Simulated scan of single mutants.
Amino acid sequence: MEIRIDDLTEPKVIALISEHLRGMFENSPPESVHALPVDGLKKPEITFWSAWENDEILGCGALKELDPTHGEIKSMRTSSLHLRKGVARKILEHMITVAKERGYSRLSLETGSMESFGPARKLYESVGFQYGKPFADYTEDPNSVFLTMEI
């Protein structure tokens, strides 16, 4: 698997982001969807990675700099064709490594509280994220959970 910084122009990447957004809106009320569209991921404070095997996209993830010591995990998604193969774990571990290299002392994320988000929450818990309060511009929402990890 090759994980590389992506400029979000490849049609396969755009299709995966579209799959991600569809999934978020299928499993969450619209006011609780915090996933970003392609244009939202092209901000200077966001680094976006895609994971590939040959010419097949496996998954993606993004890291948003909230401040010089705090990053936010965004847009974690594994292609529906590659679920339960360790793709998300490898992307997440890559982003944690980059966060450490950047000198961040903390990583945070928001994900859904519903059952469909259970596998994602288990992944985050398994690498050391702990449940906490809203951060950045987030507010309390019964459809969201907030996790943070000191690094």
Rank of each mutant, 00 (worst) to 15 (best):
T78M: 02
I17G: 02
S18G: 10
M149N: 14
G103H: 11
P119N: 01
D141E: 14
K90V: 10
I57T: 04
N54G: 13
K74H: 03
A99W: 13
I96L: 11
A35D: 06
A99K: 00
I5F: 06
D137F: 07
T97Q: 12
E26F: 07
S79K: 02
S79R: 03
G61N: 00
I57M: 05
S105Q: 13
G112R: 03
A120W: 01
D39G: 08
V33F: 09
F146W: 07
L63E: 03
S105Y: 12
V13L: 01
V145R: 08
D55R: 13
L107A: 07
E19M: 06
S80P: 14
V127I: 11
E19R: 01
K74P: 07
V145N: 04
W52Q: 00
S80C: 13
A120S: 08
L147H: 01
L21K: 09
F48P: 02
R106K: 15
K12P: 08
L92N: 15
I57W: 09
N54T: 12
V98E: 11
M1Q: 10
E65S: 09
D39W: 04
S75R: 05
K74E: 02
S79G: 08
I73C: 11
E45A: 10
P44Q: 05
V98R: 03
L107D: 08
W49V: 08
F129H: 05
P134T: 05
V13F: 15
V38A: 11
R22W: 01
D67I: 10
E65C: 03
L58Y: 10
L92D: 12
W52C: 00
E56K: 06
L36P: 04
K133L: 06
E45G: 05
C60K: 02
V13D: 04
S144E: 01
S32P: 04
P134R: 03
T148K: 14
G61E: 04
R89F: 08
A62N: 04
R106N: 04
H82T: 11
T78H: 03
G112Y: 07
I57A: 10
S116W: 00
L147S: 15
N143E: 05
D7C: 03
M149A: 03
K85L: 14
I73T: 11
E125A: 04
V87L: 09
H70P: 11
K90T: 13
N54S: 15
W49D: 15
F135E: 04
V87Y: 07
E19Y: 06
L63F: 12
I3A: 06
